[in-house]
Design a protein around this nucleic acid. Structure first.
Lengths: 339, 339
DNA sequence: CTGAAAGCGCTTACAG
DNA sequence: CTGAAAGCGCTTACAG
């Protein structure tokens, strides 16, 4: 890296003290310096191509202006818009984000977070929370401002922003009920994740509200939120409850896995079985058949999470807020009126 | 953030000089210290929950261990696996990545890069390169190690890793020719991007090799690599060249846009028009009809880019290498033999 | 094998 | 309104 001018170089060039240059160049302290001097310094700085060294500034101010984002799988397209939303908000306030791929293993996640803390991130946004999450406990113990996004923990120790998962699945299930379905199955997500847990509750609540009897056999819990897990769970569910006329899935990937399981059994969606997903991820409007699902604002979720973290950074005493975004039904062609 | 123990605290606790603690804790210099002392220091460090301050270390060593990744749109699922690949490799060497959303505007990209340099990133990976790219010029002038991923510039001033875009489109077009098609159109990507430019060349070369006459009317250049741009270009192309029996698209999103244009004209793919995409992005195996396309190794692309950058960092004199990955035809159901 | 000192490039009380 | 000094937490020549 080319040696770049520092404060001292500019100071000697202008004939003032480095601290004066520092003050003149920092908008917060600029008013302390005589306007014409500020001008001369700014000019010289741009002549020199001066770039404030944020590493050095951070060491002195104890603020790195860096935020860590921890996701389970960065290659999963679902997280991209969340990260995008976070970045957008952070950038406006001079923060940058380190995004770290932490996988599903708790020990590994812990190590990742340790490294982030070693880099003196000012805050952390976790998209990896389990309902009972030891990683968050570690963050709290380290005293790092942390917020949760997409998933929450059961205790609400910190701020979080999620979609209203329970409501979302209630809406999804009601949609099926309104179409006349009575034998409705559920491919649930992992129970240790708030998304899996709450969506299952929403499913059960919707059935109960419609006075449909709960049938444990009609619920199959997938081992992960993936197409492969959806296929496996779908196979098992169709085997066990062949009378199902509709299935609500805990997310779109699971629904897509179910599509494959249906095909294996020569069942056609929606004629034989209606399917509804959750999330409205990119491209599910183009699959065959276009997937009816629940849209959630991923970008907005990221933006709000960043905003919450910034608030927490500005005021360490700010109370934890639990933000729940409203989901929306998107009817496409994978659900059909029962006749 | 909780006040965490520093070198000095450990030094006084053990009864040695801070520099000794520094040496004992750093694997590179550990051999300088008596083994039993190393042990005592390590023990005390873990008792204190010591975490080396990478900000401070970076200021001193002039290495931030931070890499900047610049993408045009982080919310675009296509970039997710590239970022994932980069992270994977960087993490093994103790580097972390700041990923920055730079948009399409050159001036804005420049500002983003300026900020990254201000943070003293050790290197930069750009996924935003134009064939003639002033942002790269700025990076070079600043003396920051830079590599290009996914897109290259026309001059090859730095290392880059891309898919063989020209070959990819030649394979795609040959596939259509082998199916008997003679009236083949092309929805091209923006000409100022290597992907748009090279894929168009590949298309033209394949036609020439098969002795099919070049018809400028059968090529429509889309304004961006998006579904919306694909729809617009598709409409215009179908209007101008209604006799086309097949269309090779510069990427999958463009192909999906063309799907919509086809539908508008009551044309069915592949019966009336065969369509082939490029990239094999997630879910295009499930669209209707499943898209025949060219698979490129996004994750591998990211990994190689990181490896190249690391090599460059280890040896500033390392020559620029242009790595071109081999793409692969994936036949699905959007292409059909002409009869 | 270990210590003492200097310094990376900033910011910010403290003076004047 | 400006300067001089101290210090953020490390690393690393230089001594011994």
């Amino acid at each position: 890296m080319k040696r770049t001018a520092d404060l001292r170089a500019i100071a000697t060039a202008v004939g003032v003290h480095p601290s004066t240059v520092s003050r003149a160049l920092n908008p917060e302290t600029r008013h302390l310096i005589r306007p014409d001097l500020v001008e001369r310094i700014k000019l010289m700085a741009s002549d020199f191509g001066y770039r404030r060294d944020l590493l050095a500034a951070g060491l002195r101010t104890r603020r790195s202006m860096l935020i860590g984002i921890v996701v389970p799988d960065i290659a999963n397209p679902g997280f991209a818009p969340i990260i995008g939303g976070i970045e957008t908000v952070l950038a406006t306030r001079g923060y940058a984000a380190i995004v770290a791929n932490a996988g599903l293993d708790e020990a590994h996640q812990l190590e990742i977070v340790e490294r982030l803390i070693g880099r003196r991130v000012d805050g952390l946004i976790l998209a990896t929370a389990r309902r009972s999450d030891s990683v968050l406990t570690a963050c709290l113990q380290a005293g790092v401002a942390t917020v949760l996004v997409n998933r929450t923990e059961a205790d609400q120790r910190v701020s979080s922003v999620t979609s209203d998962d329970r409501l979302g699945m209630r809406i999804a299930t009601n949609h099926l009920i309104e179409l006349g379905h009575r034998r409705i199955g559920h491919v649930a997500g992992p129970a240790h994740l708030s998304t899996g847990h709450l969506r299952r509750l929403g499913f059960e609540e919707a059935l109960a509200a419609a006075r449909l009897p709960p049938r444990p056999d009609d619920i199959m819990v997938a081992t992960a939120f993936t197409r492969a897990a959806g296929l496996a769970a779908g196979r098992a569910l169709l085997e066990r409850s062949p009378y199902l006329t509709a299935v609500a899935c805990a997310n779109d990937l699971l629904a897509l896995g179910l599509y494959a399981a249906l095909k294996e059994r020569q069942l056609v969606c929606p004629r034989d079985v209606s399917v509804i997903g959750h999330n409205d991820m990119p491209l599910v409007d183009l699959v065959d058949p276009p997937l009816t699902t629940i849209a959630i604002g991923h970008g907005e979720m990221g933006e709000e999470a960043a905003t919450l973290l910034l608030a927490r950074l500005a005021d360490a005493k700010a109370p934890a807020v639990t933000l729940v975004l409203e989901p929306e039904l998107v009817v496409r062609q994978s659900t059909l009126r029962l006749r």
